[in-house]
Design a protein around this nucleic acid. Structure first.
Lengths: 292, 292
DNA sequence: CATTTGTCTTTTATCGGCAATAGACAGATC
DNA sequence: GATCTGTCTATTGCCGATAAAAGACAAATG
């Protein structure tokens, strides 16, 4: 086995979905652009669609033969990229499992446990090391620094510096900047989720990321925007892991977001700083509570 | 060929130097601790020392037989780690060579050019990507974002936020904290270099890094300290590359450092902020000048 | 009895190789 | 003449294998 073919499988699934509401398919380059893959992969997809009897394909003629069934799709486990699989597996180990700070991390062991080669694990650990949770001892093992109180405090300290500055920059965006439209869209999703909070409070995690990333982008600084990856991954797994009082916490955070959004619209620096600080303070508290 | 044996070669050279002023060598664990390598490597070194007739080794008895010659050392090119070799080669390409922003980076080509395997190049690029100069297109090439004016501005923006905060934290360190002693040491190196500026102005680069890293460490925030890597690498290659007016620039920067150090000692927040801002401003200007 | 040494096992760093995927080019088609 | 398809090549992502380096453990030594 060399490369996974998850790009193919994932694009295939998306193509089948596309095909559910259409009688034919567009040209190969167009399809490639729609699915975000190369023509090579498009042709592999078309070949398979033909093999399973979903499509009659001859040159430019691509006619859908029948409605797709659930069994036509690849199972979702097979569409994830290796790095996603490793990330999940690794985060489960260090967040859920009894992972003491100072613990050694063994590339070979991790690789065997997940059932993959060591190269992928190494590459993952190198990429992951920028989140500040692990550290390399050259020619030797990695050390887990752990999801500790110090980590959370250091993370939020930088987050607050960056977000205050980004929020201030946001207020200075010209009125015709697309970010304002996106802000409107985000605001209305807030109202929608709050209106059906019982059923939808878990949608907050994704919305939270979308909102804060929009704010950070206003800084127009790659280091600030990139740092948001660290925050996003920590909060992402934090939300998945710690569900106590989730509904109440998320509702409160959304109210804070709405105040923050209103402040951004006012373009008044003091109001923005207040709303931003208030929200970040409660986000920090929530995170800290989940640690001790 | 699997692993380089540069750890062995580098430790061997350091051991030969140790042996220049000593009639015998200590125990294996002690020697390992002194050289920062494992006993396995120590024993390989001892074996070779014996082979080339520098040492009589029998169990605990390790007697130096003769003074080492220049030819006993491994050539310095062989003691560098692969990642250092790749880094130098890569930085030369993107700083010196006509490397346009937007240019594609090809792993295979880079590997062939340096004469190494693709895995090492990939790992280097992944590690290097946190410096914000390159970006990965998954399943495809890397894109060079380039050492541009925007890059320098974004970098210095974050640097200024971090350093101002770190400098403020420095002033709050207790009087018995070892950082104050290190600050004294750094100050006296400044005086020493300024006293012989004609010959020693190139020593500034290393001193600059030592000083600013000390300040950043006072933040006690891993993200701030880690970010200093980005600054350090940029300024390191910048100093190597751009030597116009180096003596004058370095002398000026050292004067600014001395004022900055005095301000830190005063522990007065306003004075510190002033001195820090003044120095960072001129550092930014120097960096920008080298770009356009 | 605390170190040191001899011996052995485990892990890391790196390589070459291969399938998946991207991408280039010329001829075919509308 | 712009776009599409057929075909071919180049590059990435991943694996297994191997030498270098770390490290574990027991016997030996002072």
């Amino acid at each position: 086995m060399a490369k996974q073919n998850n790009v193919f499988k994932d694009a295939f699934n998306r193509c089948v979905k596309l095909l559910e509401q259409s009688a034919s398919l567009p040209s190969e380059p167009e399809l490639g652009a729609a699915l975000g893959v190369s023509r090579t992969t498009v042709r592999a997809i078309l070949t398979r669609l033909e093999d399973v009897g979903l499509l009659a394909w001859e040159k430019r003629r691509k006619i859908v033969l029948r409605k797709p069934l659930a069994s036509d799709y690849f199972p979702t486990e097979e569409t994830d990229s290796l790095s996603e699989i490793i990330e999940r597996s690794f985060m489960r180990r260090i967040l859920a499992g009894g992972a003491e700070p100072g613990m050694q991390i063994n590339e070979l062991e991790l690789a065997r446990e997940i059932g993959i080669g060591t190269t992928s694990v190494r590459e993952f650990l190198i990429r992951f090391s920028r989140f500040g949770l692990i550290e390399k001892r050259p020619n030797s093992h990695w050390v887990l620094k752990g999801f500790t109180r110090e980590f959370a405090l250091e993370l939020t300290e930088v987050r607050e510096m960056f977000e205050l500055r980004s929020a201030a920059a946001f207020a200075r965006l010209p009125a015709e900047h697309p970010a304002w439209l996106e802000l409107d869209a985000i605001e209305s999703v807030h109202h929608a989720i709050l209106g059906d909070i019982e059923n939808r409070y878990l949608d907050f995690s994704e919305l939270d990321e979308r909102f804060h990333l929009l704010v950070h982008r206003a800084s127009k600084n790659r280091f600030i925007v990139d740092f948001y990856d660290v925050i996003a991954i920590v909060f992402h797994y934090h939300y998945q892991w710690n569900k106590t009082n989730a509904r109440q916490r998320n509702a409160r955070a959304m109210e804070e977001h709405l105040a923050y959004i209103a402040a951004l619209r006012s373009r008044d620096p003091t109001q923005i700083e207040d709303a931003c600080r208030r929200h970040l303070k409660s986000a920090r508290e929530t995170l800290l509570q989940s640690i001790n």
